[in-house]
Design a protein around this nucleic acid. Structure first.
Length: 422
DNA sequence: TTTTGAGTTGTTCGA
DNA sequence: GTCGAACAACTCAAA
Protein backbone atom coordinates (compact mmCIF):
# COMPACT_ATOMS: atom_id res chain seq x y z
CA UNK A 1 0.00 0.00 0.00
CA UNK A 2 1.40 3.35 -1.11
CA UNK A 3 0.54 6.89 -0.08
CA UNK A 4 2.03 9.73 -2.09
CA UNK A 5 2.71 12.75 0.05
CA UNK A 6 1.79 15.26 -2.64
CA UNK A 7 2.51 18.83 -1.55
CA UNK A 8 -0.51 20.08 -3.48
CA UNK A 9 -2.70 18.17 -1.00
CA UNK A 10 -1.62 20.49 1.76
CA UNK A 11 -1.24 23.71 -0.18
CA UNK A 12 -3.14 26.29 1.84
CA UNK A 13 -3.29 24.05 4.89
CA UNK A 14 -2.00 25.23 8.25
CA UNK A 15 -0.03 23.14 10.71
CA UNK A 16 -3.21 21.80 12.33
CA UNK A 17 -4.60 20.28 9.18
CA UNK A 18 -1.20 18.97 8.16
CA UNK A 19 -0.80 17.30 11.51
CA UNK A 20 -4.28 15.81 11.29
CA UNK A 21 -3.47 14.16 7.99
CA UNK A 22 -0.17 12.88 9.30
CA UNK A 23 -1.94 11.41 12.33
CA UNK A 24 -4.34 9.63 10.03
CA UNK A 25 -1.45 8.18 8.03
CA UNK A 26 0.30 6.97 11.16
CA UNK A 27 -2.86 5.28 12.41
CA UNK A 28 -3.44 3.69 9.01
CA UNK A 29 0.13 2.41 8.94
CA UNK A 30 -0.30 0.90 12.40
CA UNK A 31 -3.60 -0.76 11.41
CA UNK A 32 -2.06 -2.23 8.27
CA UNK A 33 0.90 -3.60 10.18
CA UNK A 34 -1.34 -5.23 12.74
CA UNK A 35 -3.76 -6.69 10.24
CA UNK A 36 -1.53 -7.62 7.32
CA UNK A 37 2.01 -7.31 8.63
CA UNK A 38 2.53 -4.92 5.71
CA UNK A 39 2.86 -1.24 6.53
CA UNK A 40 2.12 1.86 4.52
CA UNK A 41 4.84 2.98 2.12
CA UNK A 42 4.99 6.77 2.02
CA UNK A 43 6.84 8.65 -0.70
CA UNK A 44 6.95 12.40 -1.15
CA UNK A 45 6.68 13.98 -4.57
CA UNK A 46 4.50 14.15 -7.64
CA UNK A 47 2.09 11.24 -8.04
CA UNK A 48 2.54 11.03 -11.82
CA UNK A 49 6.25 10.39 -11.21
CA UNK A 50 6.14 8.40 -7.97
CA UNK A 51 3.46 5.89 -8.89
CA UNK A 52 4.89 4.74 -12.24
CA UNK A 53 8.37 4.58 -10.71
CA UNK A 54 7.14 2.26 -7.99
CA UNK A 55 5.14 0.19 -10.47
CA UNK A 56 8.34 -0.35 -12.47
CA UNK A 57 10.32 -1.08 -9.31
CA UNK A 58 8.04 -3.91 -8.21
CA UNK A 59 6.75 -5.01 -11.60
CA UNK A 60 3.13 -4.07 -10.96
CA UNK A 61 0.81 -4.25 -13.97
CA UNK A 62 -2.25 -2.85 -12.21
CA UNK A 63 -2.45 0.04 -9.74
CA UNK A 64 -5.59 0.49 -7.68
CA UNK A 65 -6.47 3.88 -6.24
CA UNK A 66 -9.38 5.08 -4.18
CA UNK A 67 -11.15 7.56 -6.41
CA UNK A 68 -11.03 11.25 -5.69
CA UNK A 69 -13.55 13.66 -7.15
CA UNK A 70 -12.17 17.13 -6.45
CA UNK A 71 -10.90 19.18 -9.42
CA UNK A 72 -7.25 18.57 -8.57
CA UNK A 73 -7.79 14.94 -7.62
CA UNK A 74 -9.37 14.14 -10.97
CA UNK A 75 -6.63 15.88 -12.90
CA UNK A 76 -3.95 14.19 -10.82
CA UNK A 77 -5.43 10.73 -11.32
CA UNK A 78 -5.60 11.32 -15.07
CA UNK A 79 -1.94 12.27 -15.20
CA UNK A 80 -1.06 9.13 -13.22
CA UNK A 81 -3.17 7.06 -15.60
CA UNK A 82 -1.37 8.50 -18.61
CA UNK A 83 2.03 7.84 -17.11
CA UNK A 84 1.10 4.25 -16.23
CA UNK A 85 -0.32 3.59 -19.67
CA UNK A 86 3.02 4.60 -21.16
CA UNK A 87 4.56 1.81 -19.08
CA UNK A 88 2.01 -0.73 -20.17
CA UNK A 89 0.39 -0.68 -16.74
CA UNK A 90 -3.20 0.13 -15.83
CA UNK A 91 -4.83 2.44 -13.28
CA UNK A 92 -8.05 1.19 -11.75
CA UNK A 93 -10.28 3.21 -9.48
CA UNK A 94 -11.85 1.62 -6.46
CA UNK A 95 -14.92 3.62 -5.44
CA UNK A 96 -15.06 7.11 -3.93
CA UNK A 97 -15.46 8.39 -0.37
CA UNK A 98 -19.21 8.81 -0.98
CA UNK A 99 -22.23 6.56 -0.66
CA UNK A 100 -23.24 7.53 -4.19
CA UNK A 101 -20.40 8.64 -6.40
CA UNK A 102 -20.47 12.28 -7.55
CA UNK A 103 -21.75 12.52 -11.09
CA UNK A 104 -24.06 9.50 -10.67
CA UNK A 105 -27.45 11.12 -10.04
CA UNK A 106 -29.42 13.21 -12.54
CA UNK A 107 -32.77 14.93 -12.80
CA UNK A 108 -35.54 13.49 -14.94
CA UNK A 109 -34.23 15.64 -17.77
CA UNK A 110 -30.77 14.14 -17.42
CA UNK A 111 -29.16 17.29 -16.03
CA UNK A 112 -27.18 17.57 -12.78
CA UNK A 113 -29.13 18.61 -9.69
CA UNK A 114 -28.79 22.19 -8.55
CA UNK A 115 -31.28 22.10 -5.70
CA UNK A 116 -30.74 20.03 -2.58
CA UNK A 117 -34.22 18.65 -1.89
CA UNK A 118 -34.72 16.87 -5.23
CA UNK A 119 -31.13 15.64 -5.05
CA UNK A 120 -31.69 14.20 -1.59
CA UNK A 121 -34.87 12.48 -2.77
CA UNK A 122 -33.00 10.86 -5.65
CA UNK A 123 -30.06 10.03 -3.37
CA UNK A 124 -32.29 8.23 -0.87
CA UNK A 125 -34.11 6.37 -3.63
CA UNK A 126 -30.82 5.31 -5.20
CA UNK A 127 -29.57 3.72 -1.99
CA UNK A 128 -26.04 2.49 -1.51
CA UNK A 129 -24.41 -0.90 -1.17
CA UNK A 130 -22.84 -1.84 2.13
CA UNK A 131 -19.14 -1.29 2.73
CA UNK A 132 -16.77 -3.43 0.71
CA UNK A 133 -15.06 -6.22 2.69
CA UNK A 134 -11.43 -5.75 3.64
CA UNK A 135 -8.96 -7.62 1.41
CA UNK A 136 -7.76 -10.92 2.82
CA UNK A 137 -4.12 -10.27 2.12
CA UNK A 138 -1.94 -7.35 1.19
CA UNK A 139 1.38 -7.42 -0.59
CA UNK A 140 4.11 -5.96 1.58
CA UNK A 141 6.26 -3.07 0.39
CA UNK A 142 8.15 -2.92 3.67
CA UNK A 143 11.57 -3.53 2.15
CA UNK A 144 11.42 -0.49 -0.12
CA UNK A 145 12.82 2.95 0.58
CA UNK A 146 10.21 5.40 1.79
CA UNK A 147 9.90 8.88 3.20
CA UNK A 148 8.84 9.55 6.78
CA UNK A 149 5.38 10.69 7.78
CA UNK A 150 5.98 14.22 9.10
CA UNK A 151 5.93 14.77 12.85
CA UNK A 152 3.52 17.36 14.23
CA UNK A 153 5.03 20.67 15.38
CA UNK A 154 5.65 20.73 19.11
CA UNK A 155 3.51 23.84 19.71
CA UNK A 156 0.37 22.41 18.13
CA UNK A 157 -2.91 22.53 20.04
CA UNK A 158 -3.84 19.18 21.57
CA UNK A 159 -6.02 16.96 19.45
CA UNK A 160 -9.62 16.64 20.48
CA UNK A 161 -9.72 13.04 19.56
CA UNK A 162 -7.56 10.35 18.09
CA UNK A 163 -7.08 9.69 14.41
CA UNK A 164 -7.57 6.39 12.67
CA UNK A 165 -10.31 3.93 11.83
CA UNK A 166 -10.53 2.30 15.25
CA UNK A 167 -11.02 5.62 17.02
CA UNK A 168 -13.51 6.71 14.38
CA UNK A 169 -15.54 3.52 14.73
CA UNK A 170 -15.60 3.93 18.49
CA UNK A 171 -16.74 7.53 18.12
CA UNK A 172 -19.43 6.48 15.69
CA UNK A 173 -20.68 3.72 18.02
CA UNK A 174 -20.86 6.20 20.90
CA UNK A 175 -22.80 8.64 18.81
CA UNK A 176 -25.12 6.06 17.27
CA UNK A 177 -26.07 4.70 20.69
CA UNK A 178 -26.11 8.08 22.41
CA UNK A 179 -26.36 11.50 20.83
CA UNK A 180 -28.08 10.38 17.65
CA UNK A 181 -31.61 10.38 19.07
CA UNK A 182 -31.41 14.05 20.03
CA UNK A 183 -29.24 15.02 17.07
CA UNK A 184 -32.03 16.89 15.27
CA UNK A 185 -32.08 19.62 17.91
CA UNK A 186 -28.82 19.19 19.83
CA UNK A 187 -26.69 19.56 16.71
CA UNK A 188 -27.47 23.27 16.76
CA UNK A 189 -26.11 23.87 20.24
CA UNK A 190 -22.46 24.89 20.28
CA UNK A 191 -22.55 24.93 24.09
CA UNK A 192 -23.36 21.19 24.05
CA UNK A 193 -21.59 18.19 22.54
CA UNK A 194 -24.49 17.35 20.24
CA UNK A 195 -22.82 16.86 16.86
CA UNK A 196 -21.35 13.60 15.62
CA UNK A 197 -17.83 15.02 15.28
CA UNK A 198 -17.32 12.58 12.41
CA UNK A 199 -16.34 15.18 9.82
CA UNK A 200 -12.63 14.51 10.25
CA UNK A 201 -13.01 10.76 9.97
CA UNK A 202 -15.08 11.16 6.80
CA UNK A 203 -12.61 13.66 5.38
CA UNK A 204 -9.62 11.35 5.78
CA UNK A 205 -11.44 8.18 4.77
CA UNK A 206 -11.22 6.64 8.22
CA UNK A 207 -14.95 5.98 7.97
CA UNK A 208 -16.97 5.49 4.82
CA UNK A 209 -20.53 6.84 4.65
CA UNK A 210 -21.69 3.43 3.39
CA UNK A 211 -20.53 1.97 6.69
CA UNK A 212 -22.64 4.51 8.57
CA UNK A 213 -25.74 4.02 6.42
CA UNK A 214 -25.54 0.24 6.61
CA UNK A 215 -25.03 0.40 10.34
CA UNK A 216 -28.00 2.74 10.78
CA UNK A 217 -30.24 0.40 8.80
CA UNK A 218 -29.04 -2.62 10.78
CA UNK A 219 -29.38 -0.95 14.17
CA UNK A 220 -33.07 -0.21 13.77
CA UNK A 221 -32.79 3.50 14.65
CA UNK A 222 -33.21 4.55 11.05
CA UNK A 223 -36.69 5.98 11.61
CA UNK A 224 -35.91 8.34 14.47
CA UNK A 225 -35.86 12.11 13.87
CA UNK A 226 -32.20 12.27 14.88
CA UNK A 227 -31.23 9.54 12.46
CA UNK A 228 -33.22 11.14 9.63
CA UNK A 229 -31.50 14.48 10.16
CA UNK A 230 -28.09 12.82 10.39
CA UNK A 231 -28.72 10.99 7.12
CA UNK A 232 -29.73 14.30 5.55
CA UNK A 233 -26.41 15.78 6.67
CA UNK A 234 -24.61 12.97 4.86
CA UNK A 235 -26.74 13.79 1.82
CA UNK A 236 -25.57 17.42 2.02
CA UNK A 237 -21.98 16.26 1.94
CA UNK A 238 -22.73 14.18 -1.16
CA UNK A 239 -24.75 16.94 -2.81
CA UNK A 240 -21.93 19.42 -2.56
CA UNK A 241 -19.43 16.87 -3.88
CA UNK A 242 -21.79 16.29 -6.81
CA UNK A 243 -22.11 20.01 -7.49
CA UNK A 244 -18.33 20.42 -7.38
CA UNK A 245 -17.93 17.44 -9.73
CA UNK A 246 -20.10 19.16 -12.31
CA UNK A 247 -18.73 22.66 -11.65
CA UNK A 248 -15.04 22.38 -10.67
CA UNK A 249 -14.58 26.13 -10.99
CA UNK A 250 -17.09 26.66 -8.17
CA UNK A 251 -14.41 25.63 -5.67
CA UNK A 252 -13.19 29.21 -5.50
CA UNK A 253 -15.67 31.26 -7.52
CA UNK A 254 -19.38 32.04 -7.45
CA UNK A 255 -21.47 29.20 -8.85
CA UNK A 256 -24.17 31.75 -9.54
CA UNK A 257 -22.89 35.32 -9.27
CA UNK A 258 -25.33 37.93 -8.01
CA UNK A 259 -25.95 40.54 -10.68
CA UNK A 260 -24.58 43.94 -9.70
CA UNK A 261 -23.15 42.72 -6.39
CA UNK A 262 -20.09 44.49 -5.02
CA UNK A 263 -17.73 43.45 -2.23
CA UNK A 264 -15.09 45.22 -0.18
CA UNK A 265 -11.42 44.23 -0.18
CA UNK A 266 -10.38 42.48 3.03
CA UNK A 267 -8.91 45.02 5.44
CA UNK A 268 -8.82 45.71 9.16
CA UNK A 269 -12.30 44.21 9.61
CA UNK A 270 -11.18 40.97 8.01
CA UNK A 271 -8.20 40.83 10.34
CA UNK A 272 -10.40 41.43 13.37
CA UNK A 273 -12.69 38.63 12.16
CA UNK A 274 -9.77 36.23 11.80
CA UNK A 275 -8.45 37.12 15.23
CA UNK A 276 -11.81 36.83 16.98
CA UNK A 277 -11.85 40.51 17.90
CA UNK A 278 -14.98 41.86 16.20
CA UNK A 279 -16.67 42.79 19.47
CA UNK A 280 -19.52 40.40 18.70
CA UNK A 281 -19.02 37.67 21.30
CA UNK A 282 -20.65 34.76 19.46
CA UNK A 283 -18.62 35.47 16.32
CA UNK A 284 -15.41 35.90 18.27
CA UNK A 285 -15.98 32.70 20.24
CA UNK A 286 -16.30 30.77 17.00
CA UNK A 287 -13.21 32.27 15.39
CA UNK A 288 -11.19 31.59 18.51
CA UNK A 289 -12.44 28.02 18.76
CA UNK A 290 -11.28 27.55 15.17
CA UNK A 291 -7.85 29.04 15.82
CA UNK A 292 -7.36 27.13 19.07
CA UNK A 293 -8.64 23.70 18.04
CA UNK A 294 -8.91 23.53 14.25
CA UNK A 295 -12.64 22.92 14.52
CA UNK A 296 -15.73 25.09 14.74
CA UNK A 297 -19.30 24.12 15.50
CA UNK A 298 -21.48 24.12 12.39
CA UNK A 299 -24.00 26.64 13.66
CA UNK A 300 -21.16 29.03 14.42
CA UNK A 301 -19.55 28.43 11.02
CA UNK A 302 -22.73 29.85 9.51
CA UNK A 303 -22.84 32.82 11.87
CA UNK A 304 -19.18 33.73 11.39
CA UNK A 305 -19.47 33.29 7.62
CA UNK A 306 -22.55 35.47 7.52
CA UNK A 307 -20.72 38.11 9.52
CA UNK A 308 -17.84 38.23 7.05
CA UNK A 309 -20.03 38.29 3.95
CA UNK A 310 -23.08 40.25 5.11
CA UNK A 311 -21.64 42.55 7.78
CA UNK A 312 -18.09 43.10 6.48
CA UNK A 313 -19.13 42.71 2.80
CA UNK A 314 -16.08 40.59 2.01
CA UNK A 315 -16.27 38.07 -0.84
CA UNK A 316 -16.68 34.53 0.53
CA UNK A 317 -13.48 32.93 -0.93
CA UNK A 318 -11.40 35.05 1.46
CA UNK A 319 -13.20 33.45 4.37
CA UNK A 320 -13.26 30.02 2.78
CA UNK A 321 -9.48 30.13 2.37
CA UNK A 322 -9.04 31.01 6.05
CA UNK A 323 -11.28 28.11 7.04
CA UNK A 324 -9.42 25.68 4.78
CA UNK A 325 -6.16 26.75 6.32
CA UNK A 326 -7.29 26.02 9.87
CA UNK A 327 -10.00 23.37 9.76
CA UNK A 328 -8.85 19.88 10.61
CA UNK A 329 -11.87 18.56 8.72
CA UNK A 330 -11.36 21.03 5.84
CA UNK A 331 -13.18 19.57 2.86
CA UNK A 332 -13.15 21.53 -0.38
CA UNK A 333 -16.68 20.76 -1.58
CA UNK A 334 -18.40 21.21 1.79
CA UNK A 335 -16.39 24.30 2.65
CA UNK A 336 -16.78 26.15 -0.64
CA UNK A 337 -20.45 25.39 -1.02
CA UNK A 338 -21.24 25.94 2.62
CA UNK A 339 -19.77 29.41 2.21
CA UNK A 340 -21.73 29.98 -0.98
CA UNK A 341 -24.92 28.93 0.77
CA UNK A 342 -24.29 31.76 3.22
CA UNK A 343 -23.22 34.22 0.54
CA UNK A 344 -26.22 33.42 -1.65
CA UNK A 345 -24.03 32.64 -4.67
CA UNK A 346 -24.40 28.87 -4.64
CA UNK A 347 -27.05 26.26 -5.27
CA UNK A 348 -29.54 27.98 -3.02
CA UNK A 349 -29.76 31.56 -4.20
CA UNK A 350 -33.34 32.19 -3.13
CA UNK A 351 -33.20 33.71 0.36
CA UNK A 352 -31.34 36.93 -0.27
CA UNK A 353 -32.62 38.03 3.12
CA UNK A 354 -30.72 35.35 5.00
CA UNK A 355 -28.58 37.60 7.17
CA UNK A 356 -27.78 36.21 10.57
CA UNK A 357 -28.04 38.50 13.55
CA UNK A 358 -24.96 37.50 15.57
CA UNK A 359 -26.55 38.52 18.87
CA UNK A 360 -29.90 36.82 18.26
CA UNK A 361 -28.13 33.66 17.07
CA UNK A 362 -25.97 33.65 20.18
CA UNK A 363 -28.91 34.10 22.52
CA UNK A 364 -30.87 31.41 20.75
CA UNK A 365 -28.24 28.70 20.39
CA UNK A 366 -26.00 29.52 23.36
CA UNK A 367 -28.75 30.63 25.75
CA UNK A 368 -26.62 30.55 28.91
CA UNK A 369 -23.54 32.11 27.33
CA UNK A 370 -21.43 29.04 28.15
CA UNK A 371 -19.92 28.80 24.69
CA UNK A 372 -18.93 32.47 24.66
CA UNK A 373 -17.37 32.37 28.11
CA UNK A 374 -15.41 29.26 27.21
CA UNK A 375 -13.71 30.84 24.20
CA UNK A 376 -13.69 34.53 25.14
CA UNK A 377 -12.16 34.67 28.60
CA UNK A 378 -12.45 38.49 28.69
CA UNK A 379 -16.18 37.93 29.14
CA UNK A 380 -15.95 35.15 31.70
CA UNK A 381 -17.15 37.51 34.44
CA UNK A 382 -20.52 38.08 32.77
CA UNK A 383 -23.42 35.91 33.93
CA UNK A 384 -25.62 33.87 31.60
CA UNK A 385 -26.76 35.42 28.36
CA UNK A 386 -25.23 38.76 29.39
CA UNK A 387 -22.04 37.44 27.79
CA UNK A 388 -23.65 38.03 24.40
CA UNK A 389 -24.14 41.76 25.04
CA UNK A 390 -21.33 43.12 27.18
CA UNK A 391 -22.33 46.69 26.22
CA UNK A 392 -25.53 46.27 28.23
CA UNK A 393 -23.83 45.18 31.42
CA UNK A 394 -22.21 47.60 33.90
CA UNK A 395 -19.19 45.28 34.23
CA UNK A 396 -19.11 44.49 30.53
CA UNK A 397 -15.70 45.80 29.54
CA UNK A 398 -13.24 45.07 32.32
CA UNK A 399 -10.66 42.93 30.55
CA UNK A 400 -9.74 44.44 27.22
CA UNK A 401 -12.52 43.05 25.07
CA UNK A 402 -13.18 45.26 22.00
CA UNK A 403 -16.39 47.15 21.42
CA UNK A 404 -18.28 46.10 18.27
CA UNK A 405 -16.32 47.09 15.16
CA UNK A 406 -19.54 47.75 13.25
CA UNK A 407 -23.27 48.26 13.69
CA UNK A 408 -25.08 45.11 12.59
CA UNK A 409 -28.35 46.88 11.80
CA UNK A 410 -26.58 49.34 9.49
CA UNK A 411 -24.53 46.67 7.73
CA UNK A 412 -27.59 44.46 7.30
CA UNK A 413 -29.31 47.32 5.50
CA UNK A 414 -26.17 47.89 3.44
CA UNK A 415 -26.13 44.22 2.46
CA UNK A 416 -29.75 44.33 1.31
CA UNK A 417 -28.97 47.48 -0.64
CA UNK A 418 -26.07 45.75 -2.41
CA UNK A 419 -28.33 42.79 -3.22
CA UNK A 420 -30.79 45.13 -4.85
CA UNK A 421 -27.93 46.62 -6.83
CA UNK A 422 -28.66 50.18 -5.66
C1' DT B 1 -43.48 23.74 -24.19
C1' DT B 2 -45.60 25.72 -20.46
C1' DT B 3 -46.93 25.89 -15.98
C1' DT B 4 -46.58 25.39 -11.19
C1' DG B 5 -44.94 24.88 -6.62
C1' DA B 6 -41.00 25.07 -4.11
C1' DG B 7 -36.49 26.48 -2.49
C1' DT B 8 -32.02 23.68 5.29
C1' DT B 9 -30.63 26.36 9.14
C1' DG B 10 -33.47 34.16 9.12
C1' DT B 11 -34.97 38.82 10.86
C1' DT B 12 -37.80 42.64 11.58
C1' DC B 13 -41.90 45.13 12.04
C1' DG B 14 -46.37 46.08 13.23
C1' DA B 15 -50.81 44.48 14.77
C1' DG C 1 -45.32 38.12 24.29
C1' DT C 2 -47.06 36.12 20.03
C1' DC C 3 -48.00 35.94 15.28
C1' DG C 4 -48.14 36.71 10.39
C1' DA C 5 -46.42 39.26 6.70
C1' DA C 6 -42.82 41.21 4.25
C1' DC C 7 -38.34 41.07 2.68
C1' DA C 8 -36.28 40.72 -5.03
C1' DA C 9 -36.78 38.29 -8.21
C1' DC C 10 -35.21 33.93 -9.95
C1' DT C 11 -34.26 29.20 -11.04
C1' DC C 12 -35.09 24.56 -10.61
C1' DA C 13 -37.53 20.10 -11.19
C1' DA C 14 -41.28 17.78 -12.40
C1' DA C 15 -45.97 17.46 -14.00
Amino acid sequence: MLFVLDEVLLAGAGATREARMAASLRAFDADLRERYAAGLLVRSGTPSAIVPALAREIGARTVWVSGETTPYGRQRDESVRTALTALGAELRVLGTPYAVGPGTLHTGAGTPFRVFTPFARAWRAHGAPGPAPAPATLRTLDGLAGDPIPDPPADLPPEDHEAGEQAALARWADFRDGGLTAYDTERDRPDHDGTSRLSEALKYGELHPRTLLADLAASGVIGSPGSAVFTTELAWREFYADVLWHHPESAWADLRPIAGMTYDEPGAGFEAWQAGRTGYPFVDAGMRQLAATGWMHNRVRMVTASFLVKDLHVWWPHGARHFMQLLRDGDLASNSHGWQWTAGTGTDAAPYFRIFNPIAQGRRFDPHGDYVRRWVPELAHLPGAAAHEPWKHPDGYVAGYPEPILDHALERAESLRRFRGD
